[in-house]
Simulated assay, not measured.
Amino acid sequence: MDFDLTERQRKRHEELLTALAEGTTERPPGAERPYDRERWSAAAGLGLTGLCLPGEYGGGDLDALDTALSLESFGEGCSDTGLVFAVSAHLLACGVPIRDFGGEAARAELLPGLASGALIAANAMTEDGAGSDLGTLSVTAERDGDRYVLHGEKSFASNAPAADVFVTYAVTDPGGGYLGISAFAVPRELPGVQVGETFDKMGLSSCPAARVRFDGVSVPVRLLLGHEGQGSAVFTHSMAWERSCLFAGYLGMMNRQLRLCVQHASERRQFGKAIGSYQAVSHRIAGMKQRLEGARLLQYHAAWLLSQGRTDNGAIALAKVAVSDAAVANSLDAIQLFGGSGYLRETGVEVDLRDAVPAVIFSGTTDIQRELIARGLGL
């Protein structure tokens, strides 16, 4: 087994960190930064909105592991985790299903804009009565000649207020269960697409989210993703990419966070010496390092398997749980290490916790992932 990154991978990491340090993707300490098209464009200019999209459409042609490594660099070099999440969701939950299931016309129409970042995509799956249980979707799509007419509302769509296109899922066969769901790419400009007010969220503030309503939206058949009734498979595929790659952004966040904690423990003095010399502090930092490295190995493994064409749901679930749990635990430890100053927004320490908490909820809750792990063990 070879755990070394290639020279090409190391070079990409260093170049991205340098470019991010020189760019405009940062969030000032303590600032609540809403969505900002300029910062989105800065990330797009580095190729981050098209990492794994086909080169013929302007993408980076990267496999899952290289995509994850690039998103880890993004998370490390950019303190705005909301922006990292927004770009990752655009790419993985929307770009990937269009790449792999869109027809030639849909790919040619949408992928160049998605790769360049000129188009922003939102994934509209969740409904009030359907989160983890995809079999209870209420949004419907009825075939009408060369179009599908969509009716219903999605309750939570990241990127929605800024989105130009929505990847969404609707029931086309009410009696078909999971085989009765179909996937669509829906341009925002179509009559009947209505985006609600931006949610006031706990964290990830620069990734805006809102409800999306489809009020008799007439979607051309060319924007059906896959075949009719293949929506569940499309969604499962996109989530395999999201869970295998998106959470690498949190690895980058924890890299950055750990460096900050080591620096603080070396510089902050109490009772005549650096607080890092006390075991209560140094052991806490050692625990942060242990969680980070364990999560990193599981994340890389899941992404590597996907790059080999092996979608291992157990490995993906293990990685998702490890990274999201580590992100929350390490963020709590960081606040503890900084003490009172860590609780103040102006220092920029507490924001990592607020940005980490959603990781145990989106892309399939931690409880659902643990259930998948248990089933893989035969329970």
Results as ranks from 00 to 15, higher is better:
11 K>H: 04
12 R>A: 15
12 R>T: 05
13 H>A: 06
14 E>K: 03
14 E>A: 02
15 E>C: 13
15 E>W: 09
16 L>V: 05
17 L>C: 09
17 L>G: 13
18 T>P: 06
18 T>Y: 14
18 T>M: 12
19 A>Q: 04
19 A>I: 01
20 L>M: 07
21 A>I: 10
21 A>T: 06
21 A>E: 12
21 A>Q: 10
21 A>V: 08
21 A>Y: 01
22 E>C: 11
22 E>F: 01
23 G>K: 12
23 G>T: 05
23 G>A: 15
24 T>L: 01
24 T>D: 05
24 T>S: 12
25 T>D: 03
26 E>M: 06
26 E>H: 09
27 R>Y: 15
28 P>K: 07
28 P>Q: 07
29 P>L: 00
30 G>V: 12
30 G>H: 08
31 A>W: 15
32 E>K: 08
32 E>V: 09
34 P>E: 08
34 P>L: 04
35 Y>D: 10
36 D>N: 00
36 D>H: 00
38 E>A: 14
39 R>H: 07
40 W>H: 06
41 S>W: 13
41 S>R: 14
41 S>V: 13
42 A>T: 06
42 A>N: 11
43 A>H: 00
43 A>E: 07
44 A>I: 02
44 A>V: 03
44 A>S: 11
45 G>V: 13
45 G>W: 07
45 G>F: 08
46 L>D: 10
46 L>T: 11
46 L>K: 07
47 G>K: 11
48 L>N: 11
48 L>S: 06
51 L>Y: 11
52 C>L: 14
53 L>P: 00
54 P>Y: 03
54 P>T: 09
56 E>T: 02
56 E>K: 01
56 E>W: 03
56 E>M: 02
57 Y>D: 03
57 Y>N: 04
58 G>K: 13
59 G>C: 06
59 G>R: 15
60 G>V: 07
60 G>E: 12
60 G>R: 09
63 D>P: 02
63 D>T: 12
63 D>S: 10
64 A>I: 05
65 L>Y: 04
66 D>P: 10
66 D>Y: 12
66 D>N: 11
67 T>S: 02
67 T>P: 00
68 A>T: 09
69 L>Q: 02
69 L>G: 03
70 S>V: 09
70 S>D: 05
70 S>T: 11
71 L>E: 07
72 E>R: 15
73 S>R: 11
73 S>P: 13
73 S>Q: 14
74 F>R: 07
74 F>L: 14
75 G>I: 05
76 E>A: 08
76 E>S: 06
77 G>W: 02
77 G>N: 11
78 C>Q: 13
78 C>R: 07
78 C>E: 08
79 S>V: 09
79 S>G: 10
79 S>L: 03
80 D>R: 00
81 T>L: 05
82 G>D: 05
82 G>L: 08
83 L>D: 02
